[in-house]
Design a protein around this nucleic acid. Structure first.
Lengths: 344, 344
DNA sequence: GACATGTGTGCAACCGCTTGCATTAATGTC
DNA sequence: GACATTAATGCAAGCGGTTGCACACATGTC
């Protein structure tokens, strides 16, 4: 049915091992023979069977890419960049979506382990211990997370969060809400830590609302909590939530940014298209995808390359942030109500 | 290194063929033996090597999914649904992005052919002839295209286009522009055909602008052409272009929908979030992803299942369309200028 | 008790390819 | 011209599984 190495061998009058070497070790075969074999292969439409090759060499030329939610606009640019970079190195990408479910994450890694040269774990929700264990079964590169001993591509979300909160403080906001992301997210912890420290340093009050699902709906549903907390500015775990939040705020009659300023993080395509346009922290998503693939492929040679790539983020000021109530805001700690669903 | 069928055989005191049958033909092995083997396998953490299995059975349990542009928000829901549906049947998905390039499309299909049980070709830009040829090399299901002899999942874009244009006509618009999609797109041809027929039936004038790249920028850049054509309403090839177009129109000083009404197609998530919210034709993207996977897997048994699945579309009226200039519009065919980039 | 029947397991070939080793021919060295 | 060296190719084992066939044994039938 399908044309194999034997067909090519027969057609070009050499042994199959010569054909094999023509493709995997060309320098070992006589140039004349080589070109004859290549001609036959071309003519027959021969393509090496990677599965068969992988069986012996252990290299599959496949990469697993695991994301929490393909439909979250944060991921597509990353996937696209990774796929393109992988193809440059003749690798293919398995994409799996875990629906934000840590258990599914583990299962998918295990299911993919034997069929890939390595797995890119994007924004994993698993525990560090589990990730370390899995990394013994298959080469792993984590994106948006830092674990000692595991190669990682991290974006400087802490720096981004700092700049975002500083921006709000500079605008005169003193009562800021942080709409947190999902439990188990490293990014969420980083943001929380950095935003808290920055608020403290700027003598602003930070109310943490969450955890929440990292979706538009997640943002929409906390709009009331934000208003009840009396915040004049909000920093959200990601753009999708920020956009949902703005929807919710507008629906509740609050104006953005006149009454409430909103900052997101990610700079997804959407952020330039909503009204008001979203002020946000741009994360280099595509660069992260490329870097992760590069690390994984480099990784192969020397297993202890636990380098960590750090990518810079950048504050993009658009229209969803504006001046706060000013330095003389009648902020009375007494009327800060702790609404349902608010944690610290 | 990795635990194989032989390790399990040794541990449970049976021949490897018995272990093999325990997994691939359980009814052939004695229940006692079976449970013993399963226990050993579980304890050793054995996972069958799919590549090795594929070598003999010819079934890889992999599916290729080829899209024109992952970053186009139309695709992620489709990919997500397909991946999820595939996983239900214990299949994995290779995702490839072709950057809207037909040549790359062909190359990717060929590269994937041997490693998958079939390929889902989403919105292919290739010629029918080429698709037919490829379908002889690997089982194919096309999405958003119809080719006799090839299983397909098609959305009723023609019906959608009709309803969109009828909606504009009902609002009183008589000079309508169609912002066309990329060359080679079946959807683009369907839309053009259906929109033309509907306009003619409704005594409206339809100016076709394009072809254009199916992106936000593609829409943005034709805003001037639309205004120059004197159209009071526009139907765009997809939501992304419609949204870009609205940006462009607003930037040029035109109000939407007061001066120009805009309808898109796809109902991507974005469409609910922009201002004004986009009137559009909703296409059942996730359903298409699921259906395509199902067809491909069913396909396996009986190669001549060239069924075509047809999915309904639906007009979603939001805020980007409004009343036209009315029946007494001073439309003078004489001042219809054919701007640069306008085709018919 | 002889025989057909069925059940569970082992044996070995094979899927398409890679690779260490043996073999042969060509080349260089003194 | 004998010998070591190098280059090019063939041979065959094996990667981790599957599967047709043979075999041993237990049962049922007359």
């Amino acid at each position: 049915m399908s044309v194999t190495i034997r067909d090519v061998a027969k057609a070009s009058g050499v042994h199959i091992s010569t054909v094999s070497r023509t493709f995997s070790a060309p320098h070992l075969v006589n140039p004349n023979t080589r070109s004859r074999v290549l001609a036959c292969a071309e003519q027959l439409g021969y393509r090496p069977n990677r599965a068969a090759r992988a069986l012996i060499t252990g290299r599959t030329y496949n990469i697993g890419l695991i994301v929490a939610d393909i439909a979250n606009p944060f991921f597509p640019p990353l996937i696209k960049a990774a796929e393109s970079q992988a193809r440059k190195h003749d690798h293919h990408i398995f994409v799996a979506d875990t629906n934000e479910d840590p258990a599914l994450e583990e299962e998918v890694v295990r299911a993919l382990a034997k069929q890939v040269d390595g797995v890119l774990l994007c924004s994993p929700r698993m525990s560090n211990a589990l990730i370390e264990q899995l990394s013994r079964e298959v080469p792993l590169v984590v994106v948006n997370r830092q674990i000692t001993g595991i190669p990682a591509v991290a974006m400087d979300v802490a720096g981004g969060a700092r700049r975002a909160v500083e921006h709000l403080i500079a605008l005169g906001h003193r009562r800021i809400a942080l709409v947190a992301g999902p439990r188990g997210s490293w990014t969420s912890r980083e943001i929380r830590r950095s935003a808290s420290a920055t608020a403290r340093a700027g003598s602003a009050e930070l109310t943490i609302i969450g955890p929440n699902p990292p979706t538009e709906v997640g943002g929409l549903t906390v709009a009331e909590d934000v208003l009840r907390a009396g915040a004049t500015a909000v920093f959200a775990y990601n753009d999708l939530m920020a956009i949902g939040l703005i929807e919710g705020l507008l629906a509740a009659g609050a104006r953005v940014p006149q009454d409430v300023s909103v900052v997101g993080i990610d700079d997804i395509m959407l952020s330039r298209l909503t009204r008001p346009k979203l002020t946000t922290v741009a994360t280099p998503t595509a660069a992260a995808g490329r870097a992760a693939v590069d690390m994984l492929l480099a990784h192969g040679d020397d297993r202890r390359t636990t380098a960590h790539v750090h990518l810079q983020t950048e504050l993009v000021i658009r229209d969803s942030t504006g001046p706060g109530p000013g330095p003389h805001s009648p902020a009375d700690p007494g009327d800060v109500i702790a609404p349902g669903g608010v944690a610290s």
